[in-house]
Amino acid sequence: MTKAAALLLAGSLALVACASDEKDSGAGSKGGSDGDLKIGLAFDTGGRGDQSFNDSAVAGVEKAIKDLGGKVQELSPNDDASNRAELLTQLAEAGYNPVIAVGFNYDDVIAEVAPQFPDTTFAQVDGSNADGKKGDNVTGLLFAEEQGSFLAGVAAALKTETNNVGFVGGVQSPLIEKFQAGFQAGAKAVKPDIQVQVQYLSPAGDFSGFGDPQKGKLVAQGMYQNGADIVFHAAGGSGKGVFEAAVEAGKRAIGVDSDQYLTASPDQQAVIMTSMLKRVDNAVENFIKAYAEGDVEGATDIVNDLSTGGVGLATSGGYIDDIADQIKDFEKKILDGDITVPTKP
């Protein structure tokens, strides 16, 4: 066996030695928006097809390409996401510009890679670079998730008949805690005595909570059995399980990130009351357009909140049309600064 492996490896190394170098090179046109746009998009775990923020980022890039022309190279990390740095480096090396990293997990990696490519413009969805520590060429695309979640809490509190709602978080990380904090605050703002059940699918450091529909379903079932009639999830792919539980229990659920009503099956559409929108697509599209016009400063954050339409509630299905005015009121209070939504529960 060992000898065979040795032979195999020797063989492959020999192949390497005479490997052809006819692969097309993109290193020719580096930096600047003089030619066609070459956008690099590095996904977070889950990659394309998560029906969540990775897909939303793709939608943003596609809209930008439709208006400006150009092309995109998408890259997903491997299963344990140990090659994130390689994704960004190889995109930058191949001349892709701007390079957009999706997810806060790129925090350390982008700080390591971006300074090596000063001519490339980077953006990171969900990652802050207000202090410029990640380099002058990195822009953070942030969202006020707590504000959107606050409105989701308001809607849930207005609609609940049992005075009991639930929150299912994917992974107990500071980002998801923003969703929880906003949701709780919103629910309590309408009904101070409301009971909000909170549960996370996995602890910090274990990302399985974003991709475990079975567990999402179990947890949501528990919440419905404990009297909740509306459950809000911020659990990525695990949210499918929450919807299934809602269908089986005949109760309702609130989606997250994108308008999940639009991608759900008909029986699930009946239970998805609304979705807390996080417009990653708009943020990405706007960033690319700003880049094309040469308006990207770097070392800043672009915060997408209620005032910019970066977060909000979806109205598909018309389940919250009757409380639209009350939601508007709360929205106005946040915009006017009468309500400051907490970011930590």
Partner: peptide, 28 residues
């Protein structure tokens, strides 16, 4: 893969790593 011998495991690890490296260029 390495049949529990240290040398075999070394080659197995290299083979896995060799394949893993291709994950990025394959997407290109």
């Amino acid at each position: 893969l390495g049949r529990n011998s240290p040398i075999g495991i070394a080659f197995a690890a290299l083979l896995f790593a060799f394949l893993d490296r291709a994950a990025v260029p394959l997407q290109f």
